Computed example of a mutant assay.
Amino acid sequence: MTATLADEIRARLAVLAPEAIDIHDDSAAHAGHAGAAAGGGHFDVLIVSEQFTGLNSLARHRKVYALLGDLMPHRIHALSLKALTPDEL
């Protein structure tokens, strides 16, 4: 079985010990878009982790981007991110 980019995103984010993670590949909805034409995917990610406790939204996003940054902008063209603590669900 071949791993997808969503599988790779999930594997990389595992270090944050997420209690929940939902990755939705919206790439097909952006067919013909300049970034999509170059092969970059569009993803919506919801991640819930205790490791976000005490961090503001910017710091949470930075933690995620530190893990995925090398995938952007070529493999991931657009990333919509929602990073929550378990208490914020």
Results as ranks from 00 to 15, higher is better:
A3T: 15
A3F: 01
A3P: 07
A3V: 13
A3W: 06
T4W: 06
L5I: 03
L5M: 05
L5E: 02
A6S: 15
A6F: 03
A6Q: 12
A6P: 05
D7I: 05
D7Q: 08
D7V: 02
D7Y: 03
D7C: 02
D7E: 11
E8G: 00
E8A: 08
E8F: 01
E8N: 12
E8P: 03
E8T: 14
E8K: 11
E8C: 05
E8Y: 01
I9C: 01
I9W: 05
I9Y: 00
R10K: 14
R10C: 07
A11K: 14
A11R: 13
A11I: 01
A11W: 06
R12C: 06
R12N: 05
R12A: 03
R12H: 05
R12G: 01
L13C: 06
L13I: 07
L13N: 00
L13K: 04
A14P: 08
A14T: 08
A14Q: 13
A14G: 08
A14L: 08
A14Y: 04
V15R: 14
V15S: 13
L16R: 01
L16Q: 10
L16T: 07
A17Y: 00
A17H: 14
A17F: 01
A17W: 04
P18W: 05
P18K: 02
P18V: 06
P18E: 09
P18C: 10
E19W: 02
E19K: 04
E19F: 08
E19P: 07
A20H: 14
A20P: 01
A20C: 05
A20K: 12
I21V: 14
I21L: 13
I21K: 01
I21D: 02
D22K: 12
D22V: 15
I23C: 03
H24V: 15
H24M: 07
H24L: 11
H24N: 10
D25S: 05
D25V: 04
D25C: 08
D25E: 09
D25Y: 04
D26E: 15
D26L: 14
D26Q: 12
S27K: 07
S27M: 06
S27P: 01
S27L: 09
A28H: 14
A28Y: 11
A28Q: 13
A28D: 14
A29P: 00
A29S: 09
A29G: 11
A29V: 05
A29H: 07
H30V: 01
H30I: 04
H30D: 10
H30W: 09
A31N: 15
G32W: 09
G32D: 09
G32I: 09
G32N: 09
H33P: 00
H33N: 11
H33F: 13
H33C: 08
H33E: 14
H33V: 08
A34V: 15
A34I: 13
A34T: 15
A34D: 15
A34R: 15
